[in-house]
Design a binder for these strands. Structure first.
Length: 556
RNA sequence: UGUCCCAUGGUGUAAUUGGCAACACGUCUGGUUUUGGUCCAGAAGAGUCUAGGUUCGAGCCCUAGUGGGACAACCA
């Protein structure tokens, strides 16, 4: 983040040069605790914390908890965890909008006394009607001219709990004819007899977003309030309230940027919640979810997510990022760090007929060719092995470098083997291959210098470990599910987004692996250990495949 | 019949007015390779939504148009 520059950094820089807010830079990340954070939030987090860091300022974490009926501590906890995991630190600056409920209330009374706010007794639908439309001005409420005394009395009784939900609201008195709907006497407080996750039953009136956000920024000393484009139209109102509140030159400034969209995924918290509640996915941390907890479980690294955010930049144009860029970001990171290992997803048995029956021989394998310090490990080689089903073809096409009848290939780090016989079951399915090995080729090189084109991964059938491997594909079948207006979004789900392979085999090295540990299965992709994995049953997620030029060729 | 925002290769971003537009991903070639991975070398692909204007000179400034988006929740 420190390297890149964007229009927001330019504006901040200008503010500093002009000496605004005494040259301070103080940002905030303000999630509502009503759902789990997703990769779209990661963009905001990186921007908020990254901007502060770049200019030697600070960034607060503030929970925007003004709507108790939708919010929950479960979300608070997950949000904190996800931000830390991403690599950011709010230090001692953890706030809640609810911390400021008293000050907000006092400010509301102030506005009432100044004749800038009034209590409206009308029901929601009437108020909505009177608001007009974007093209037609609104009309004033009959309660607009109430005296400050009456307003104050009513507002205090609202606070005291005298009225039921929806009976009255507090409105700012601005301009019912404004072309900006948000300036047409916006609601400041509504009555909601609900228990709040922090303030309990102290309040039965809660401030609306517009009456809370900017002021909280002000109370916290925020200088740059960065948010997504949909709040652009709120900015005049944001400034209006701040102007009523401010006692000197200090002003927080709202700047908007476009949110992150990814192809084949959906960022709506509401819709993600729907998927969770209706069991379309296993939970907020289902590895197919674009949530940070889901991506973490799937095997994405914080580095890869930060790298993606860096690559996409910050602008006001609304675009959609190709998931391929995300995939590149993980591969790029994992390639440098992931322990290499061999695992067979779709096992095909191979018997080395000229290899001793009970022999277990250790061959040495490199742990990470990109990192010499990762060292080496021993992998057991035996007479009976598994190889990938896709690595054998009875009638191979041109340029098929893998195994086929009569052909010789290298088993990685072990020996050259030649296929002599194909065994099939009654159904005609290939169920076993009989091969011979060349004892002279131990380690994978032949003393006579003969070359083999193909190198296959393998796992000992007797020493290997069985595992369940879960393969994930895009959650949605269409590039832009949010843009599909005709169909219900659940109809756009990819029915094949999860494939469970119960009978995979991995090398014994994986026995000591713990949840979240990451590996590259050579030639197959990047994988990690799932949280459901136990000593009895190894459960592994595929994060992403390796780039695969061969399958690209085959598809042409 | 409003206000505001946006518009650069397939995608996402650059370009402090003045060298027929740069980078990343993706795509395609070729090389290296005990991962058809990585790495290396190279290629194709836009003339900057349109029309005017300002200027010696405009992707950058102005105007109009076109296209897309936001705004009418007691949500944030």
């Amino acid at each position: 983040m420190a390297k890149t520059r964007n229009f927001i950094h330019e504006l901040v820089e200008k503010d500093i040069q002009e000496g605004k807010n005494t040259g301070r830079v103080h940002t905030r990340f303000p999630p509502e605790p009503n759902g789990y954070l997703h990769i779209g939030h990661a963009k905001a987090i990186c921007l908020d914390f990254g901007t502060a860091e770049k200019f030697g300022g600070k960034c607060n974490l503030r929970f925007d908890d003004t709507n108790p009926t939708k919010e929950d501590v479960e979300y608070v906890d997950s949000i904190k965890e996800d931000i830390k995991w991403l690599g950011f630190d709010w230090e001692d600056r953890l706030y809640y909008a609810s911390d400021f409920f008293d000050r907000l209330y006092d400010f509301a009374e102030q506005l009432i006394q100044e004749g800038k706010a009034y209590v409206d007794d009308q029901p929601a639908d009437l108020i909505s009607q009177q608001r007009g439309t974007p093209t037609k001005p609104g009309v004033e409420s009959p309660y607009r001219k109430r005296s400050a005394e009456e307003n104050l009395d009513l507002f205090r009784r609202m606070k005291a709990g005298e009225f039921k939900n929806g009976a009255r609201v507090l409105r700012a008195k601005i301009d019912m004819t404004s072309p900006n709907m948000h300036m047409r006497d916006p609601l400041m407080y509504r009555i909601n007899h609900a228990e709040h996750h922090r303030t309990g039953n102290k309040w039965c009136i809660y401030p609306m977003y517009d009456f809370a956000h900017g002021q909280c920024d002000y109370f916290e000393g925020i200088t740059h309030s960065l948010c997504t484009l949909e709040f652009e139209i709120h900015r005049p109102l944001y400034n209006w309230f701040i102007d009523q509140l401010a006692t000197d030159d200090y002003r927080p400034r709202q700047i908007e940027f476009s949110r992150l969209n990814l192809t084949y995924t959906m960022m709506s918290k509401r819709k993600l919640l729907y998927l969770v509640e209706n069991d379309f996915v296993s939970g907020w941390d289902d590895p197919r979810m674009p949530t940070l907890s889901g991506m973490r479980r799937r095997g994405f690294t914080p580095e890869s997510i930060r790298s993606l955010v860096e690559k996409v930049g910050i602008t006001k144009t609304e675009g959609t990022i190709d998931v391929a860029l995300l995939e590149h970001a993980v591969r790029d990171d994992l390639n440098k760090t992931a322990q290499r290992v061999m695992g067979v997803l779709n096992p095909l048995k191979v018997v080395i007929t000229n290899y001793p029956e009970d022999k277990v021989e250790m061959v040495q394998a490199i742990n990470n060719p990109e990192d010499e310090s990762a060292g080496r490990r021993d992998v057991p080689f035996t007479r009976e092995l598994y190889i990938e089903r896709d690595d054998f073809m009875e009638e191979p096409p041109r340029k098929f470098f893998r195994l086929s009848p009569g052909k010789e290939v290298r088993l990685r780090y072990a020996y050259y083997v030649t296929c002599n016989e194909v065994i099939k079951d009654e159904a005609g399915e290939i169920c076993e291959l009989r091969c011979t090995y060349d004892p002279e080729t131990r380690g994978g090189n032949s003393p006579d210098g003969r070359k083999v084109k193909g190198t296959l991964h393998w796992v000992s059938a007797t020493e290997g470990v069985k595992a369940e491997i879960r393969l994930y594909d895009r959650l949605f079948n269409v590039e832009n599910p949010a843009g599909e207006k005709e169909k219900e979004f659940t109809e756009l789900l990819n029915p094949e987004s999860l494939k469970v392979l119960p009978d995979c085999f991995v090398e014994p090295f994986l026995r000591s692996a713990k949840p979240l540990d990451q590996f590259q299965f050579e030639r197959m992709g990047y994988f990690n250990i799932d949280k459901e994995s136990t000593e009895e049953k190894l459960v592994i997620n595929r994060t992403v495949t390796l780039r695969d030029n061969w399958s690209k060729q085959m598809n042409k």
